[in-house]
């Protein structure tokens, strides 16, 4: 029927690209993380664990870890909760539901740079529309992106606004896959709407939730573009994500060694997170046969 080589030949092109552009680069990054280099010299002296020592002892790094963790731990559950709630209202295949679904979904496919530009302007202190609207009601202007207590929440808001529609659409599909007789049974049992939601809907869309959780956590820990365009990690580091710091150290300050060390640390963190999710959460869902 087919030779034993067939599967290898089929995966070879993908693996070749992954090897060249993902795995070998990881090794290169690890190597560079033990060296001192600013791109300008031919020599890249070996400095041992010095870069790691500097990164791990810097308050900036721990600040960025904290900020990223807050971002991920707030925005991911927020998105999923909103999405499952909204999805359960939009699950019907009728015109109003489809219209709203379309509107909610749209931002998730549009350009992050453009969205970030637009929201930077909306939230601008002096000529932003939001503060102008507040002024109409006689309210003082708010320093959305300049107040370190607020900026992260604006970022979370923008990210949620942009990504929510994707989660909703995935959830709707999950909901539509639930056999309707299960609902009928629950309704016959005299289930209240919320009860049905909690006892039938939520457990049955668990695979969807797991899928979204994995995807959005990974994405949350790598968030960069929105922050880069809107705040560049400021004000005073309040929105400085790990990747933003990585980019700054690597590509603004050109400390290739420390930048690579941060990349390696982020890599380890994400792998640990994935293992944790597979161990702890993976047991509670049955994603596939």
């Amino acid at each position: 029927m087919h030779s034993r080589m067939t599967p290898y030949l089929l995966i070879a092109p993908l693996l070749a690209f992954i090897a060249v552009f993902t795995y070998i680069p990881i090794l290169t990054s690890v190597d560079l993380s033990f060296r001192e280099w600013d791109f300008l010299t031919a020599a890249k002296p070996w400095v041992g664990t010095e870069n790691y020592r500097l990164v791990l002892s810097s308050t900036q790094f721990w600040n960025s870890v904290k900020v990223t963790a807050i971002f991920a731990l707030v925005s991911v559950p927020l998105r999923l909760l909103l999405a499952i709630g909204i999805a359960s209202y939009l699950v019907r295949e009728a015109l109003p539901q489809r219209l709203l679904r379309g509107a909610l979904f749209l931002p998730s496919v549009t350009s992050t740079v453009a969205i970030a530009v637009v929201f930077s302007w909306l939230f601008a202190t002096d000529y932003g529309v939001i503060n102008a609207a507040l002024a109409v009601f006689g309210l003082p202007k708010i320093y959305w992106l300049q107040d370190p207590q607020l900026a992260l929440w604006v970022i979370i808001f923008v990210n949620t606004w942009k990504q929510l529609g994707y989660d909703i659409v995935i959830y709707i599909a999950g909901l539509q896959a639930i056999p309707t007789d299960l609902y009928d049974a629950a309704n016959v049992d005299g289930g209240k709407r919320f009860h049905v939601f909690r006892r039938v809907t939520v457990p049955l869309v668990m695979p969807t939730t797991y899928f979204l959780l994995v995807i959005s956590m990974i994405e949350a820990f790598q968030v960069f573009t929105v922050v880069d365009v809107m705040t560049r990690g400021g004000p005073a580091g309040a929105t400085d994500m790990v990747v933003n710091m990585l980019y700054r150290v690597g590509f603004t300050l050109f400390d290739i060694g420390q930048g690579s060390a941060i990349a390696v640390l982020l890599f380890i963190l994400l792998i640990a997170l994935a293992v944790f999710k597979a161990r702890v959460l993976g047991r509670r869902v049955h994603y596939e046969a």
Binding site: A124, T125, D126, Y127, Q146, T231, G234, P235
Partner: peptide, 20 residues
Amino acid sequence: ASVDGVTKENNGRDAFLAGK
């Protein structure tokens, strides 16, 4: 001084040019 010009240098100048 508006904090707008703190987080993005150009904002202060833009506001000056806009007569604000």
